[in-house]
């Protein structure tokens, strides 16, 4: 795995925020809310809702990306949302919304999983009630070798990749997305590889959080 760096509270105007680097991939997530949802017809009376917006900065990739919401960002925003939703006690705040904005400032592969890790940390920093962490990583197959945490070049030349997120304490999968050509056995191996890697990421992230917040308490 590449070096993981985490910085919390970088967006001081947000209720919670986190900057996460997986090697040269840099994701910044900011959380606003829970706040009253407008317009009112979107409100759910049994539960709160989570909205996520993933976007790639125009300068984050080699060829400038046209700013704005393209089809890939729409899909990834949804994928990130459904990866995070199972962990949040949304029923604690009916009629309200939690907004998450993730900006990929620099892209070198595995941006959606980096975004999920940043989102998770930003939500925890914002004090949103959660059942568990959501930790994510990518795994894949390159030259018939199974690898973890694909960077940009590896992503381009991989035969297959899987994006994976899970809740380490509840031992449940929240994101499982893949493409390429894989056999059933390869999928099984990649899942266990992904799980092991996520457990390592979890330890790093937990360390950062307790480092930051235990100091504040004492």
């Amino acid at each position: 795995m590449r070096k993981i760096e985490v910085e919390l509270g970088v967006v001081t105007r947000a209720n919670g925020s986190a900057l996460v680097k997986f090697g040269d991939t840099v994701a910044l997530a900011a959380v606003y809310g829970p706040a009253e949802l407008h317009p009112a017809h979107l409100r759910e009376y049994q539960t709160g809702i989570l909205r996520c917006r993933y976007s790639l900065a125009p300068f984050s990739v080699e060829e400038r990306k046209v700013p704005g919401f393209d089809r890939r960002s729409v899909e990834l925003s949804k994928v990130i949302r459904v990866a995070i939703e199972p962990a949040i006690f949304l029923e604690e705040f009916p009629k309200a919304v939690v907004d998450v904005f993730v900006e990929i400032l620099q892209a070198d592969g595995s941006t959606r999983v980096t975004a999920i890790n940043a989102t998770n940390l930003a939500l925890i920093s914002a004090g949103i009630p959660m059942r568990d962490f959501v930790v994510a990583c990518s795994v894949g197959k390159i030259d018939n070798c199974l690898v973890v945490d694909l960077n940009g070049i590896e992503d381009n030349f991989s035969q297959a990749d899987i994006n994976f997120a899970f809740m380490p304490n509840r031992n449940k999968i929240t994101l499982f997305q893949g493409d390429g050509q894989l056999t059933k056995n390869e999928i099984k191996e990649l899942i266990s590889l992904a799980k092991k890697s996520c457990e390592k990421i979890y330890e790093v992230e937990k360390g950062v959080l307790s480092g930051k917040y235990s100091r504040q308490i004492s």
């Binding site: 949302r81 459904v82 939703e85 199972p86 899987i162 809740m167 509840r170 031992n171 449940k172 999968i173 929240t174 994101l175 499982f176 997305q177 893949g178 493409d179 390429g180 050509q181 894989l182 056999t183 059933k184 999928i187 099984k188 899942i191 799980k195």
Partner: peptide, 20 residues
């Protein structure tokens, strides 16, 4: 029988055994 695309939908979690 090679798997070419996988997508998980929905706002609930999955067990590890579910996938196989």
């Amino acid at each position: 029988d090679k798997i070419c695309a996988i997508q998980k939908y929905g706002s609930k979690e999955l067990e590890f055994s579910d996938i196989e």
